[in-house]
Design a protein around this nucleic acid. Sequence first.
DNA 1: GCGCTTTTGTGCGCGTGTTCACAAACCCGT
DNA 2: ACGGGTTTGTGAACACGCGCACAAAAGCGC
Lengths: 278, 278
Amino acid sequence: MRASSPERPSRGSGVPTPRRRRASGRGSAEHDGAPRGIPEASIARLPLYLRALVAMADRGITSVSSEELAGASGVNSAKLRKDLSHLGSYGTRGVGYEVDYLVYQISRELGLTQDWAVAIIGIGNLGRALANYGGFATRGFRTACLIDADPNQVGQRVSGLAVRHLDDLEALIAEHRVAIGVIATPAGAAQEVADRLVAAGVRSVLNFAPAVLTVPPGVELRKVDLSTELQILAFHEQRRVSAVAFEAAANAVVPDDVGDVIDAELGPVAPAASGLRV
Amino acid sequence: MRASSPERPSRGSGVPTPRRRRASGRGSAEHDGAPRGIPEASIARLPLYLRALVAMADRGITSVSSEELAGASGVNSAKLRKDLSHLGSYGTRGVGYEVDYLVYQISRELGLTQDWAVAIIGIGNLGRALANYGGFATRGFRTACLIDADPNQVGQRVSGLAVRHLDDLEALIAEHRVAIGVIATPAGAAQEVADRLVAAGVRSVLNFAPAVLTVPPGVELRKVDLSTELQILAFHEQRRVSAVAFEAAANAVVPDDVGDVIDAELGPVAPAASGLRV
DNA sequence: GCGCTTTTGTGCGCGTGTTCACAAACCCGT
DNA sequence: ACGGGTTTGTGAACACGCGCACAAAAGCGC
């Protein structure tokens, strides 16, 4: 189910068309030029809602309450309603939200009613996986070009697209009107690639390389960091073990310098070898 | 450079050994069983600091100020200091932090002084990329087993490891003492895999499947969502275009119902086709 | 037409995280 | 031994996001 019908969906059932956003209220209290200021946290959840809604639409569900949609998205229903209220007043009190209509509104807000050209730079393991990843993601994006610095990679076809050389980056960006650059290079090359992308006019960058990138203001930079995610999980595993050991230590002695106990007992010891799975 | 030296590093230079964490203060104000409550936001940044520190250590840098480290990590220096202060008082006023020592302390806090066994479930494009991704990530993790439901995949060797069948999941988890499960299956299979992982004793799950998973309390679930990241970027691209169109519309007419202008002018129109790159 | 039920939209208090700014602590030169 | 310069660690103000709880609105039955 594609979310691109521009005209208002005319309802077949007796459910009336929801009103458009209020003329009054805080919506118009924004600065000029910024139509409305949707909190970043809300924006980050819109894709979740959209995914759940599309799944519902595919199953033939036409109407949904905030409670149901919140459940399907794994969030609090009040949070969901507040998020949606930032887009406008698209629900019907006592009834809920019409699925198709909401899909369209969220898609429009996220800019998915048009296709954005994506360039993937760095066709290694990860880059190749991204290129092959079923049209990369959901609709709204088109993998326009694949770029790599390795001459052996250049010319190879990945997912129906020929890999081009890094030297042609600027020309390719211009030619394909690339809006989003995906960096999947080794860490060492990431900043240079980012600089060149920005210089070529790209203002949205998604970085998979394990490196801290800096971009000029006005350029949106997001990062996906696999090792960081793993390390955060490791922390929580570690903490579980620590907590147990700490409690045992605290029951045994009541030291005035707790830190040394932790250093001495928890550091060298490898408690997970046996106690990892409880 | 491995961060596993358990004993306090004895300094060769004239820089004195930093003091351990204070016996007094809020550190001991925590509940029993939870040695110290480090904010989640701080934890998420520790891997960043660690990466920057390791890079510095490799370059032979032995001492670093909060300002320098913050710059290398792309964060505010005050935030960095507060984050580090949650671990203890590991700096020297007027001097800075000793790189090796801080690497060890952060590694220990993150539980990286031991290797955690990781299982990857779903050896498709992404799973294969993750398996090949240079030891998966930084040190501290060991890819213990690869699991897939497709009989054609089973037996294939990926990155030196034979792919095993999903039926053996529970046995493999137990055998390898897997602590972290990485889900790279299609969305439809993700929840079932998660349930089986949890039932088998895994309490840390990293989900790459585009699905909302629910796990019982006590299980740590993190997700990496490629399409969501793209869609967030698309939003900002869209907003740039919107802002321009909005301003133009606002200058042309001054309606009492601004919403209709947005709907009528911004919805159907495809401004990016020509104006995508300005 | 009217009250009853349901569900949205939101005002408000609360907790968490961020940032500023400064005192305390430390090194070093004299 | 001591004062000057530097950098950490942290108190306090601020900003932001979350969730409760409720009023407003819509549909429905009688």
